[in-house]
Amino acid sequence: MGEICLTDEFILETHGLTKEFAGFFAVRDVNLKVKRGTIHALIGPNGAGKTTCFNLLTKFLKPSAGTILYKGQDITALAPADVARLGLVRSFQISAVFPHLTALENVRVALQRQHGASFDFWRSKSVLDQYNHRAEELLEDVGLSEFTKTPAVEMPYGRKRALEIATTLALDPEMMLLDEPMAGMGHEDIDKIAALIKRISAKYTILMVEHNLSVVSNLSDIITVLTRGKVLAEGSYADLTKDERVKEAYLGAGHG
């Protein structure tokens, strides 16, 4: 990934990003800069405001204050669907698939959005078969070939997360926001998803919330630590493990 890191361009920036829920600041004055082509991790204890941050960045929540720049463009006032259309696509903390659609159909829904014809109510859905090939490729890419015809609801949890990633990749986004992609997974699945994220990061910028610190240390180029809605520290994993404040607020609690 060295060559991508050469460009010092920030794909996503926030200035003074703040979200207030009736007097409670879930996110407070966050200035975040995500470099293009990196895996950037956002970590912090429960309730630190990580998911809220994601919701603000993708406009699922309206910021109380602050601005969001994506590729130099101010997206603070955009609708969430428009943010997605610009190539900034998120996943959810709770696995987000279309449960009663098959894995193939899940991916196709994303492909269909890009290629249009989504309002055609008079045509047979067999026109969507033209996307099957691409959908199968994407599923194979994340190791889901055997599940092509399986309804998502019947897939194991870890596989659902992989399906989510395949669906997101179908949009060919420039930047992906992954909210705890490995939460609730066993070791084997974690390794698979980590390898997958590592692989796709060659092409995409990734901002990731993750509690599993070994995953974070292995994957991320840079880490931002959030506590009580504020940025506490930022740096590489090595830097942060030396940081007393981080140890105290976050790592310390876990290590005992």
Binding site: A96, L101, A117, S118
Partner: peptide, 16 residues
């Protein structure tokens, strides 16, 4: 139809 597929997806998981 293609439209029906999107409709089902929305019913299943609108935020997604």
């Amino acid at each position: 139809s293609p439209f029906g597929e999107v409709l089902k997806a929305i019913r299943e998981n609108e935020p997604r």
